[in-house]
Amino acid sequence: MSGAAAMQTMSPPGDAGGPRSARPVRMTPARWGLYAFLAITAAFFLLPLWVMVVTSLKTMNEIRLGAIIAPPLAPTLEAWAKAWSSACTGLACDGIRVGFWNSVKILVPSVFISILVGSMTGYALSFWRVPGANVLFTAMMIVAFIPYQVFIYPLVRVFAFIGLGQSIATIVIVHTIFGLPTMTLLFRNYFSSLPIELFKAARIDGASFYQIFFRIMMPMATPMIVVAVILQVTGIWNDFILGLVFAGRENLPMTVQLNNIVASVQGEREYNVDMAATMLTALLPLVVYFGSGRWFVRGIAAGAVKG
């Protein structure tokens, strides 16, 4: 059987009397080059993650003697334990868990409220003709590009003036404010893609503004909600500057605390603890990323629409 197949490969394609010709193999060198390029770039992208993981599993002694990319000889979670519960930021030595729980406290309400406000704004802008809506929308599109530094100081004063100062409530409101353009755009684009007849039919059936929103639109928008959650969870978890300014000393998020742990050198720097703390901070976004698969890409594509 396989001998016959080989024979067929041998017969030239133009051979009139010959048997059916088989598919010739194509451009292997080019394919090799392609895969080599992909592999080399993949190594560049994976190197930091690999180094981060192996370093966090080593002892300081091994780090000093061995190669940075070598796998740990005797993997130990000591650095992880120290990073979690006893690494120092300045005088306090409670580990990064403090920042972790602060981040959770910031994350949950921020994600919920920013998506609620953003989706409602997007809904109102896509189905309801309200004077000023265009101005609002254009302003949001522009603001999405403006650096935070322009807004930060006045906002600090405003929150001090209304008595919230630096607090969880403040940082939640700030995340809602700065998430508003992207969230609004995400939902507005989605709702605009729905047939307008759906909305008209609901109105003829006598549904009110909020009934249409909660009963008809939001259930249909589930895919967008997933995308929004992914965007906001990673975005808010990864935030540094807003947490630093608005959360207050007691509520600093994990990213800020991570930076403080690495910065506060007392005696020798413990790279394994640093990398364990870094890994812990990166864990949630990585889980969201690898867990959500194509949804993350969809989120980026949807978020990129603002550009």
Binding site: L38, T41, A42, F45, L46, L47, P48, L49, V51, M52, T55, I68, T234, W237, N238, D239, F240, T255, V256, L258, N259, V262, Y271, D274, M275, T278, T281, A282, P285, L286, V288, Y289, F290, G293, R294, F296, V297, I300
Partner: peptide, 25 residues
């Protein structure tokens, strides 16, 4: 999908994490 995941995963991480890892490397 695997190639794509490898190239895109850094984008899911914060700049603080990025900065610290590369500082170490």
């Amino acid at each position: 999908d695997s190639w794509r995941s490898v190239y895109l995963y850094p984008y899911s991480m914060s700049f603080v994490v990025t900065g610290l890892v590369w500082q170490w490397l």
